[in-house]
Amino acid sequence: MYLYVTTSGLNSFFIETGELANFALRFFKEVFKRPFEFKEFLRQCYNMGNRSLLLVGVTGFIIGLVFTLQSRPKMIELGAVAWLPSMVSISIIREIGPIITALICAGRIGSGIGAELGAMRVTEQIDAMDVSGTNPFKFLVVTRILATTLMIPILVIMSDAVALFGSFLIENFKGDVSFTLYFDEVFRALTYSDLIPSTIKTFFFGFAIGLVGCYKGYYCKHGTAGVGLTANAAVVEASMVVFIIDFASVLITDIFYSI
């Protein structure tokens, strides 16, 4: 019995992975086919980008504040308080900004997509689209995945900027560091090997969040109750995939930038 449960669990995991890969493959097949649903794409971009901005901005700001406040005493103890801007900027740009934003977006956007597509599936809206001659995959899935892929990097950049600004405020209040000095320190510490890989990986984060959300929603089953489960699963799986991508990206970056 136990063996059966394990193997079936493992099987379903592999099946899920395979289906997700298939779904991604279908996305790449469809994305280059005309016509391109530009209006829907813009609508999704607006929904995901602009509407997430406040949430992401506030989170980023608080992360910047808290991170600086927490590290400050220790840095003072070490006599390295002058290095706080460089330390904070590297951690935010490299890891904290992308991962926090991606997780928040997995929560907000991933679950949103999962629930929306799930609801559309169970109320036959997707079938209705199919019948009315619009490829629902192109109209719903391709636009959403593209939108997350392009919007999340922008959200991450904004979140980074706001977080650095939050960190600057603390430094300014507590340490009398001027705006110019703070950002001079920040950009002195940063290199392209910090900014570029972490920006590239956010595209993958966005893609993963969109893909998992769409996949979960598109194949939603079990009626209205299934929609809730779908949204939940979308968040959990998207977050997990984000972490896996993050890990992989660190490994790859390491290979490229280690001399």
């Binding site: 559309m120 036959e124 079938d127 209705a128 689209m129 019948v131």
Partner: peptide, 20 residues
């Protein structure tokens, strides 16, 4: 198939209006 579907209308059980 799409061409055929132009000629065939389908009224869904739950109306299936696009909520958004």
């Amino acid at each position: 198939l799409n061409e055929i579907r132009t000629e065939v209308g389908f009224l869904f059980q739950g109306s299936a209006l696009y909520d958004s």
